[in-house]
Structures are given as C-alpha cells and as structure tokens.
Amino acid sequence: MSQHDLPYRDAAAVMLLNAENKVFVALRIDNKADAWQMPQGGLDDGEDPQAGMLRELEEETGIRPDLVELIAPARRVMFYDLPADLVGKVWKGKYRGQRQHWFLARFLGTDADVNLDTAEPEFRGWRWAEPAELPRLIVPFKRRLYEDVLEEFAEYL
C-alpha cells in the first residue's frame, strides 16, 4: 500500500491568541530540533471538532476550556501530508497526514495557567510568537498549512 492509499487522520487545532495578538506555540517533546507548533491533535470517533480542540488544548497545555473564548472556526478543513520517511513511524503507519479543523481563539488566562507537565506531556517549552513568525518556526512539511491558517484568520490578526 502506498502512502497515497492511506486515509487522513481527523484532527482539530487552535491558533490561540493572547491579549497582544501573539500566538501560543510550543516545542514538541519528541523532536530534538526547534520544531514549534500550535496545539493540535486527533479527534476521537464522532467527537465534535470544537470540543476536540478544547480537549486537546487542555491535555497538551493545561489550559482549561473556561480560559478560552472562540473567535472563529476556519471556513474550510485543511490538510497536510507527512514526509514519506515519517509515514510508517507516526500513528502506527495508519495515516498519510492530517485533516484538520482549525479554530481561532482568545486566551483569557495568564501565563501561570499554562502547564506543560500534563498526564502525557507532548511539549518541552512554549512561548508567544508573532503570527508572521509561524511559517518559519514550524517543521517544513507543515509550512504551507501554517500559511493557509494565517491567510484564513488574517482579518482577525
């Protein structure tokens, strides 16, 4: 079976803005490089994408749903493909990439509300980044996706 025969993994993701319109990004724990990303993760079967986004955000960052105000959902679902050398290593080789439901949200808490020391830590560091920095912070295979997300939410940034 080739990579292109595999399905996409359903996922939800969030561009979380602070009061200064900077974006929450975090360093993956499983990547030694400076691979920053916005919070995102797979949806459970039948899970509502917005509920999944809030669940993933809390699981990854400790940020509670009551500290998040939804600004806008993306008008379309966005995709990315894994590089060929990662297809067999990520998600037990079952998926070619992700089909992501993106949301733009406002963080209502303080930096003290962020806690990466979660039950199953995924990140080793975090910071607030300028939106324009995002494409160069992300791993190259997700760069086009992040450019699309920036374009999608440009009117709010």
Rank of each mutant, 00 (worst) to 15 (best):
1 M>I: 15
1 M>A: 13
3 Q>A: 15
3 Q>S: 13
6 L>N: 07
10 D>K: 15
10 D>E: 13
11 A>K: 04
11 A>L: 00
11 A>T: 05
11 A>R: 03
12 A>F: 04
12 A>K: 05
12 A>N: 07
14 V>W: 03
14 V>S: 10
15 M>K: 06
17 L>Q: 07
17 L>R: 08
20 E>P: 09
21 N>Y: 10
22 K>P: 12
23 V>N: 01
23 V>M: 02
31 N>R: 01
32 K>E: 13
33 A>M: 13
34 D>T: 04
37 Q>F: 01
38 M>I: 00
38 M>C: 12
41 G>I: 00
42 G>N: 13
42 G>S: 14
42 G>C: 09
43 L>M: 12
44 D>T: 15
44 D>G: 13
45 D>P: 10
48 D>F: 13
52 G>A: 05
53 M>Y: 01
53 M>S: 11
53 M>A: 12
55 R>A: 07
55 R>H: 10
56 E>Y: 02
57 L>I: 02
58 E>L: 07
58 E>V: 02
59 E>Q: 15
60 E>L: 04
62 G>S: 06
63 I>N: 06
64 R>W: 04
65 P>G: 07
68 V>P: 11
68 V>H: 04
68 V>R: 03
68 V>I: 13
69 E>W: 06
69 E>A: 12
72 A>T: 10
73 P>W: 10
75 R>E: 11
76 R>D: 06
77 V>M: 07
78 M>Y: 09
79 F>M: 13
85 D>R: 06
87 V>F: 12
87 V>C: 06
87 V>I: 12
88 G>F: 09
89 K>D: 15
90 V>Q: 12
90 V>Y: 11
91 W>G: 06
93 G>M: 09
94 K>L: 15
94 K>E: 14
94 K>A: 13
94 K>Y: 15
97 G>K: 00
98 Q>L: 08
99 R>P: 12
100 Q>E: 12
101 H>F: 11
103 F>S: 03
103 F>N: 03
105 A>W: 03
105 A>E: 02
106 R>M: 11
108 L>P: 00
110 T>Q: 10
111 D>L: 06
112 A>S: 14
112 A>G: 07
114 V>A: 00
114 V>I: 11
115 N>S: 10
116 L>T: 02
118 T>M: 05
119 A>I: 05
119 A>F: 06
128 W>N: 00
129 A>V: 01
131 P>Q: 01
131 P>N: 00
132 A>H: 14
132 A>E: 11
132 A>V: 10
134 L>H: 00
135 P>S: 04
136 R>M: 14
139 V>W: 01
139 V>E: 06
140 P>W: 07
140 P>K: 02
140 P>E: 02
140 P>F: 05
141 F>I: 03
144 R>Q: 09
145 L>Q: 02
145 L>E: 02
148 D>A: 14
149 V>D: 05
150 L>P: 07
150 L>D: 03
151 E>R: 12
152 E>M: 10
154 A>V: 09
154 A>R: 10
155 E>I: 11
155 E>Q: 14
156 Y>R: 05
157 L>E: 08
157 L>W: 10
